[in-house]
């Protein structure tokens, strides 16, 4: 569990991170999406205790960066942006070094290193110097060192940048697999990347969190759609049947007190909330909640995708 609370970090007059709060739960891959210079790396460096914020705090499994920085680092696996490694070392020696510093007992280290070499498909590179590795293999070594102590939380800064599509696919699969039990914060400036890898996306721009949602919500917004969520009581089947064509049901689950929670997308950017009220009345149902996600997020989103292509 990674928690970030009201984090603010200034460098001189630049506000790199501005009152940012969020949490990443175990079993969740959260994408941290924003253009270059948005404040992703700064936030991640604060979580790792590499730098301290002017105000606010971060916690990993309840351990605070101010009170127990070493303990926080023990619980984290961190992949720094641009994957700086010790180029003069061989992959195996480097992983042994990290394992030793991470406090893995000496007798377990060879097995642990072998396991990481396996998990990250580094078999052919195990005894090569890191300086000889391609970008893709460097990233895997970076991931291997972040995973070597089997941490409950991972902070991965631009893990897939500079990789070719097939490598991205492979890494994405690995992250999704790891995300089944770990809390993963995964930064990227590429929308598509966040979309395909993450359960939830945080959008950061100019140091501020400007949006949050599942990839589906966000994808809907990006394509000019709006998302309606509502709680409906009555004949839900009839309701969905009678919905106008520009609505699509994303999901519909029975909830508490006989209400059905529904999420609808609408391909039309006009506000159709009133139509949904009318329809509810027409089918003799009740509505106790109705919200429409505003297109402001979409604007941000489009701006972000521009940043991603640049």
């Amino acid at each position: 569990m990674i928690e970030v609370e009201n984090l603010t970090k200034r460098f001189g007059s630049t506000v790199a991170v501005d009152a940012v709060s969020f949490a990443v739960k175990p079993g969740e891959v959260v994408g941290f999406l924003g253009p270059n210079g948005a404040g992703k790396t700064t936030t991640m460096r604060i979580i790792t205790g590499l730098i301290y914020p002017q105000s606010g705090t971060a916690r990993v499994n309840g351990r605070d960066i101010w009170d127990e920085p070493v303990e926080v680092r023990r619980l984290l696996g961190y992949l720094p942006e641009a994957t700086p490694l010790y180029d003069e070392m061989s992959v195996t020696d480097f992983l042994r070094f990290v394992a030793t510093v991470r406090g893995i007992p000496s007798r377990d280290i060879p097995a642990r290193v072998d396991k990481m070499i396996d998990v990250c498909s580094l078999q052919t590179m195990a005894f090569k110097d890191i300086s000889e590795l391609s970008r893709g293999f460097r990233q895997r070594v970076g991931l291997a060192q972040a995973l070597i102590h089997d941490p409950p939380a991972l902070v991965l800064d631009e893990l897939t940048s500079g990789l070719d599509p097939s490598q991205i696919l492979e890494i994405r699969r690995l992250v999704r697999e790891l995300g089944k039990e770990k809390a993963i914060l995964f930064s990227t400036h590429i929308l598509d990347e966040a979309n395909k890898t993450c359960d939830r996306i945080l959008i950061i721009d100019d140091g501020r969190l400007v949006g949050e949602g599942s990839p589906h919500d966000l994808a809907a917004m990006a394509s000019g759609e709006a998302v309606y969520s509502l709680e409906f009581k009555g004949d839900a089947e009839l309701f969905t049947e009678k919905l106008p064509n520009h609505f699509k049901v994303v999901h519909s689950r029975p909830g508490a007190e006989g209400y059905t929670g529904m999420e609808l997308t609408c391909s039309d950017s006009v506000d159709h909330s009133e139509d949904l009220f009318d329809l509810t009345v027409a089918v003799g149902g009740k509505l106790r909640q109705l919200s429409r996600k505003e297109a402001t997020l979409e604007d941000v989103f489009l701006e972000l995708t521009k940043g991603g292509e640049a």
Binding site: R45, T48, G49, L50, V70, E71, R73, R74, L76, Y78, P80, A82, P84, L85, Y86, D87, V98, V101, R102, G103, Q145
Partner: peptide
């Protein structure tokens, strides 16, 4: 200069 201190200082060390 190489940035490897980012990695080094992210390890659980005082």
């Amino acid at each position: 200069k190489t940035g490897s201190n980012e990695l080094l200082m992210s390890l659980p060390l005082q």
